[in-house]
Amino acid sequence: MPLKEAVAQTGPLDIIVVEDHDLVRLELVDHLSGPGVQVRGADDGEVLETLLRQRHADILVVDLNLPGEDGLSLCRRMRHAFPEMGLVMLTARVMPSDKTAGYQSGADVYLTKPANVDELEAVIANLARRIRRRVSNGLQLDMPRQQLTLPAGAVIGLTLFESRLLYELALAPERKLSTEVLVQRLDPRQELPRIRDNLPVTISRLRQKMAAAPGGQEAIKAVRGFGYQLTLATTVRA
């Protein structure tokens, strides 16, 4: 079993299968799961984001024909936010232009349906062996260490709340969230008024910390009547 051999070499793997067809998703999750391999399923981008907030993933297997945000857009966003993550596109689109678009969106591997599960397993095993963190020219957020590395190399210490705020914005489509959604995601204790009141102060403090980076003072922009947007490309180590 190639995947079992890869896990023995690389350590445990966490995989998320993003597929809106329930039966296909369940079959892939069941087939890929095993000792040292945890596999979760999501039927769209919103569920994927929820799973990533709960626990990071090493590899995503993404169908392109998803409800809401399509797979190409989702893969571009994941590649920017998590450059070290492995991305496997699994789709019924077979035209050469589709494959080109897939690779341009950040895919490591592009496979067409119907999926041969043994081939998929071999692809994931090979990808697990060669995943390396890709270098970013933007900000780099290290969640375990609560640190932010600026493009010039300076490392800034963050509070847990600051780290989580940047993480949510970095993961969001267009790196932008409404105030209400941002507050809800930052509020595990249901203290909405306090979180909302403290948000402008926290963002001001973050801007000051990032001032040394080009455009750092405007790295988090207030979007009038909506919420906030992270304007600098940010990669995440979760």
Rank of each mutant, 00 (worst) to 15 (best):
E119Q: 14
E119H: 12
E121H: 11
A122L: 11
A122P: 02
A122I: 00
V123G: 05
I124R: 04
I124A: 00
A125K: 02
A125T: 04
N126F: 02
N126Q: 15
L127T: 05
L127P: 01
A128D: 03
A128P: 01
A128N: 01
R129E: 10
R130P: 01
R130F: 05
R133Q: 12
R133K: 12
R134F: 06
S136A: 15
N137W: 09
N137G: 14
G138P: 02
G138D: 03
L139R: 10
L139G: 07
L139T: 05
L139I: 06
Q140M: 13
Q140F: 14
Q140G: 02
L141H: 04
L141R: 09
L141S: 01
D142P: 04
M143K: 11
P144V: 00
P144H: 09
R145A: 15
R145S: 12
R145H: 13
R145P: 01
Q146L: 13
Q147K: 14
L148R: 05
L148A: 06
L148Y: 11
L148C: 10
T149W: 10
T149G: 00
L150A: 01
P151I: 06
A152H: 12
A152C: 07
A152M: 11
G153M: 06
G153W: 07
A154S: 11
V155E: 08
V155M: 10
I156M: 10
I156H: 01
I156K: 04
L158P: 03
L158A: 00
L158Y: 11
L160T: 13
L160K: 15
F161T: 14
E162I: 07
S163H: 08
R164S: 12
L166Q: 10
L166W: 07
L166E: 11
E168W: 11
E168Y: 14
L169C: 10
A172G: 07
P173C: 05
P173A: 07
P173E: 08
E174K: 14
R175E: 06
K176W: 08
K176F: 08
K176Y: 08
